[in-house]
Design a protein around this nucleic acid. Structure first.
Length: 115
RNA sequence: CAAGUAAACCAGAUGAUCGCGGGCAUACGCCUGAGGAAAGUCCGAGCACCACAGAGCAGGAUGCCGGGUAACGCCCGGUGAAGGUGACUUCAAGGAAAGUGCAACAGAAAGCAGACCGCCUGUACGCAGGUAAGGAUGAAACGGCGAGGUAAGAGCUCACCAGCGGCCCGGGUAACCGGCCGGCUAUGUAAACCCCAUUCGGUGCAAGACCAAAAGCGGCGACAAAAGGCAGCUGCUCGCUGCCUGCCAGAUGGUAGGUCGCUAAAGUCUGCCGGUGACGGCAGAAUCAGAUAGAUGAUCAUUUAGACAGAACUCGGCUUACAGGUUUAGUUGCAUU
RNA sequence: AGGGGUAUAGCCAAGUCGGUAAGGCACCAGAUUUUGAUUCUGGCAUUUCGUAGGUUCGAGUCCUGCUACCCCUG
């Protein structure tokens, strides 16, 4: 189980102070939060799709992808994952690999997992 | 067999593993968890708060008749009109004889009478009178068609049709239908203003109710000499009173936050009864979603491969989107018996 | 959750009370010029005003449903 970013001030803090990095499907922002655990925020805007069903599905897939790799991710960060329109219609396996790639590039994975 | 019509229904299923919301449980764990449209927010209600003596004006909505309903602009059953060979479908379907407006172009004339070409009679050949059959315009020209009639014509007369009216007759709760009689004309538009009838207070669960941290603020009350200052009684001391500052403790409003509202309901399913039907009545059954940045996902296997689409206070409708499929009841055509 | 507005040529747009859809820029053709710019003249909305229906003799305009976009309140 992981906690999530909730208030607007939390989001604003990450948007202002965080590092930004992205690939084809996602934009990742992260900043140290001084705690033991990570907090995750997921953003799927109406730019991606006007259909609530599509946005919900992408959000759930991101959540699932993060959950399955959480043990390998370094702790103590606030993360925001923003979906891009290219996520629409992609398979879960593609999204999952794409998210892993982001964590790897930003050196957020634990050492033993990196190898 | 083909084509077409109407109505009802399903909305992927099953299993395994990992995860999420809610409930129960000490715990292992068990149970449960999006839709027919959850959508658009177009109507109607419940519920909550605010406003409000009563009545009216203005404004909005609705508009054949009867019924259903908590209510409706919804539904059902009829009537009328239009379309279809038919099953059947569609219709904002009151009033134009209360008043006002509009009817471009064309046309002689566009709404209340009149007469361009005609036709007939008379004629002094300038025209005067009669007429509306025919022509031409237009979406629409003061009933249509036939016969009689006439100088030519005309509801002038007659039959049929259409329309209008009636203290009329019959049927129907009614809309209306059928008949009889009458006179012989009344353009269209109310989805133009309008008239008539019915109806409507406003805002919406971020409604609203309760608990309420820290810091600060506003006003209230009380205590005390534990402090000081100023003023007054009084020139001084004591004492008393008022104001200001400070301190102590209290209660109140209220922000973050939390709890409730919040899901058991005009609900769903099954059976019986009443009703043509919408629907109603009775009996029974079920641990029947309740989140709060907001729960349903991932992987694998089999299969007929699957659309449109995701609850946020709750219901009843309407509208719109929708793959594939199932069932029932009518219709038309062809073939065969 | 609640409320309001817009849609007319490639672009900006006018269009009242229903009766042949203004205007500007751009574009096309022609004239002027050796050529180009400027200037002048003419053309440019397929029955068509976001879309599907309805009322009407007739709809950009009136009525109803829908679509897209924009804005406001909390």
């Amino acid at each position: 189980m992981f906690s999530s970013l909730k208030s607007k001030t939390d989001f604003d803090h990450v948007y202002e102070k965080g590092k930004i990095f992205g690939n084809r499907n996602f934009t990742l922002r992260y900043v140290k939060n001084g705690k033991d655990a990570n907090r995750l925020g997921i953003v799927v805007s109406k730019k991606v799709s006007n259909r609530a069903v599509h946005r919900n599905r992408i959000r759930r897939q991101i959540r699932e992808a993060y959950r399955s790799t959480e043990n390998a991710v370094k702790q103590g960060y606030d993360l925001i994952i923003t979906a891009k329109p290219s996520c629409l219609g992609e398979d879960y396996s593609v999204l999952s690999r794409s998210l892993n790639h982001l964590f790897y590039k930003q050196d957020l994975l634990n050492r033993n997992q990196k190898k």
